[in-house]
């Protein structure tokens, strides 16, 4: 079983949802970002999404755009992001890591080389925002052949006609983008999420994680009652934006993560 499968199966047995946390690799700098990454599991993150910075994050809101810029200005590269995963895996073999970002840096790095190095580093899954199933042959197929899950985004605009196409080759989990918009935008209603998750469950047995616009432990708890996973990104990244130095950035991200984890763990009690 893959790390993602194992993790979602364990949590299902525990009767609770996963807390999936997003941070941008290299934000605000390599060392502080690695401290965040290493600290997240103890702070209650069940799955980690690690953003691969790209100059043109078309589907991201201001918070993640700024995180990307901070990381790039601090010298982050795709090679360094893979190195961060390697360093994380020295201490942690259990927490799945999903790399999230845009295709161009991988295209430039070379798909075969990337897939091989990502697997070796201990990457469990990929979410590539601008690679719809129509372009599966480019990265999804070689990644899955190497044992890396390819996680698809489904959205409010993914209708019943298109959904099977999107889910067909999905592995790991399904990410439901609950709001048509960029990351960090407004949040969806409970009714909308309930209905959307039910619709996805009719089409797939994969765990369903819900993201976009979830910022507080209360919101996380509300989603944790409905879905298999709760994704929080912009709110964590904002803590780095507002910190006065790297130490505060690390502490504030991990404190918010702990609070979110409490929300998720208490949700179904």
């Amino acid at each position: 079983m893959s790390r993602l499968e194992t993790r979602f199966a364990e949590l299902k047995a525990e009767g609770r949802a996963a807390l999936v946390t997003f941070v941008t690799a290299g934000d605000p700098g390599y060392d502080a970002s690695l401290r965040v990454l290493k600290g997240l599991p103890a702070a209650g993150a069940d799955v980690i999404e690690l953003g691969m910075p790209f100059t043109d994050p078309m589907a991201d809101g201001v918070a993640i755009q700024l995180a990307t810029l901070r990381a790039l200005e601090a010298g982050q590269t795709l090679a360094k992001t893979l190195q961060m995963v390697r360093e994380f895996r020295v201490e942690n073999q259990a927490t799945p890591i999903v790399l999230m970002g845009y295709y161009n840096p991988i295209h430039r790095f070379g798909v075969d080389k990337f897939v091989a190095e990502a697997k070796q580093a201990g990457v469990d899954g990929l979410i590539i925002v601008d690679l719809p199933p129509e372009h599966d042959a480019e990265l999804a197929t070689p990644a899955q052949a190497a044992g890396i899950d390819f996680i698809r985004l489904t959205t409010p605009t993914t209708d019943d006609a298109r959904l099977p196409r999107v889910l067909e080759r999905s592995t790991g989990f399904v990410y439901y983008v609950s709001v048509a918009g960029v990351t960090g935008a407004g949040s969806a209603t409970t009714e909308h999420v309930t209905e959307a998750v039910a619709r996805l469950r009719r089409h797939t047995d994969l765990p369903v994680s819900v993201g976009f616009g979830i910022r507080t432990p209360e919101q996380a708890a509300a989603i944790a009652r409905l879905a298999d996973g709760v994704v929080v990104g912009s709110a964590l990244v904002d803590k780095i934006a507002h910190a006065k130095d790297a130490d505060q950035a690390v502490n504030d991200v991990l404190s918010l993560c702990s609070a979110l984890a409490e929300g998720v763990r208490a949700a179904r009690k």
């Binding site: 601008d130 690679l131 719809p132 129509e134 372009h135 959205t155 605009t157 993914t158 918009g181």
Partner: peptide
């Protein structure tokens, strides 16, 4: 060429 866009946009582009 191609259609390298976020899933939200795919139904619209099609």
């Amino acid at each position: 060429g191609g259609r390298y866009v976020a899933e939200t946009l795919m139904p619209l582009v099609l």
